[in-house]
Design a protein around this nucleic acid. Structure first.
Lengths: 136, 136
DNA sequence: CATATCTGTAACGTTTAATATTACAGTACA
DNA sequence: TGTACTGTAATATTAAACGTTACAGATATG
């Protein structure tokens, strides 16, 4: 699993806890333990989808754009990691019945697996993640 | 997703199609397009769990040990890739409420996700994969 | 019983993907 | 006009995946 997904969750959770003021990529990166540029890359995806807003210049940063319960982990997964479940098989032997067909069979199975995972992730919103973080 | 999982599925499917005679790691590796040593490594795991038998020396190789419908993709996943869904987050900042708690919150969520995936993978046995490969 | 053919496994090398870093243009504020 | 941000591309570094070599042990076969 790609860590862009968890970085996005981490960032959104942090933003959710300070809905009134902006957070810079540096503050977020210190919380998440990664480089600020990575945060900006991931958050630019989330911005593109309207989950957050950003502002450049002094006093700028990132801020939540929607209600906490409007964003599910599945939404975030689709943006940051869609297809990540799909294993990248090497090209197998076309002259073998198994080699020739396995790839598309597996593709179908993993497609179904991702959809199934979606059912699970849809049930978690950022609001719930925030509650879990606060409680613990 | 680790490709050991798909290699195991590939190998078992091939073995399932020739239940009467042994297949060498070289034959399997040619079908799957990887190095024979990798096949032997993956298959040694499957052997350890009793899914297949192996024989060394001339005329040796690997052969199915159970009924095709006794092995589900979930069984194989657990052997080859358990925990693969769990993203490896960097150590985050303990002085931040988000950084300090996010890791265990995410751990719990991904644990649940893997269990949920299990429900899906349990429904596919090697027999069904074989049928899909034959049909297509 | 000597040789060829396999598995089993460790050690090492190579390739590829993930991540960090640097750099700098553009924006906004004071 | 200088300072503090985002946005993004280019490059460097690190880590993971994978391939390769090597060889010991097992087993059939001539």
């Amino acid at each position: 699993m790609n860590s862009d997904f968890t970085l996005a969750i981490h960032s959104l959770t942090l933003l959710a806890l300070q809905p009134d003021r902006m957070a810079t990529s540096e503050v977020i990166s210190e919380s998440a333990g990664v480089h600020p540029v990575r945060i900006r890359k991931v958050l630019s995806l989330l911005k593109k989808h309207g989950f957050i807003k950003s502002k450049e210049g002094t006093g700028g940063g990132f801020i939540f754009a929607l209600d906490l319960s409007e964003i599910s982990l599945w939404d975030i997964y689709k943006i940051t990691s869609e297809g990540a479940l799909q294993p990248k098989c090497p090209d197998s032997n076309e002259h073998c019945i198994v080699g020739a067909n396995m790839q598309k069979v597996l593709f179908g199975i993993f497609l179904g697996a991702e959809e199934h995972l979606g059912e699970y992730l849809r049930d978690y919103t950022i609001k719930e993640v925030v509650d879990l973080v606060k409680r613990k």
